[in-house]
Design a protein around this nucleic acid. Sequence first.
DNA 1: GCTCATTGTTTACAGGCGTAGTCGATTACG
DNA 2: CGTAATCGACTACGCCTGTAAACAATGAGC
Lengths: 132, 132
Amino acid sequence: MAATPQANAQPGERISEAEYAVMEVLWEEAPLSAQDVCAKVCAARGWSLPTVKTLLARLVTKQALSTTRDGKRFLYSPAMARSDYVGTESRRLVDRLFGGRAAPLFAQLAQAEALTDTDIAEIEALLKELKS
Amino acid sequence: MAATPQANAQPGERISEAEYAVMEVLWEEAPLSAQDVCAKVCAARGWSLPTVKTLLARLVTKQALSTTRDGKRFLYSPAMARSDYVGTESRRLVDRLFGGRAAPLFAQLAQAEALTDTDIAEIEALLKELKS
DNA sequence: GCTCATTGTTTACAGGCGTAGTCGATTACG
DNA sequence: CGTAATCGACTACGCCTGTAAACAATGAGC
């Protein structure tokens, strides 16, 4: 048995921070080759090409990326929407730190003065919309 | 050289998820002994006493907990405020996922319908206060 | 067609994390 | 005073992560 061997990896697999940096690039523009991705992050993070390759491979295993052959190389594209990732990640934080309620998070940010005037204005607008 | 040996561990050390569960208990009530802590989390997380002891030790190393001798055992107390932890952790998320701006996070939660009516009311109240 | 550069794959390795057992010291109880 | 229970320290170990080298296949250019 064991249909597809070593292929354990639910789509729910967690994406690590380094992997996330790679996803960022691909969410901005895709599909890209490993080299393209490296061109966009290697400098900033002090990575080498092999590192990016490893991360790409792991993301493919985790089904966070899909690939298309292009000659001898692969082109990588996100297999999950950025908003999905951001959503579950936000939710996770709110659940873990604020008992699942968003208001305390907001209060926290407010108290930490992490809210700019623009933020406040935008949130106000959103609120108005929500109530309609 | 090497003043205090193995004692590398800036207070900035990151607290892992399991460690956080222990901190939670101590933020709620402190000081507590290892057994007290275990009594409060072991069941819920399926841990054994040794596990809790390890986590406590690591948290002490990370200077997230302080200890007081009490006979042959230690009593543990938080060495950092919960609000500090929650603050940096929230900030980290906002920085990483929303470019440091809070409004998009709020929008995300709104769109994900993660906002209850109570949340909205409370946030509205907070907004009003902020503007005064 | 042959060689060279490029690509993905495999392997590596140290450090952190989750989970826990062992052990020597110490305290408490009889 | 001696023995048993308990405590913290040390050790362990597999998995994930960050980072990367080695290698084998494959496609491109001459």
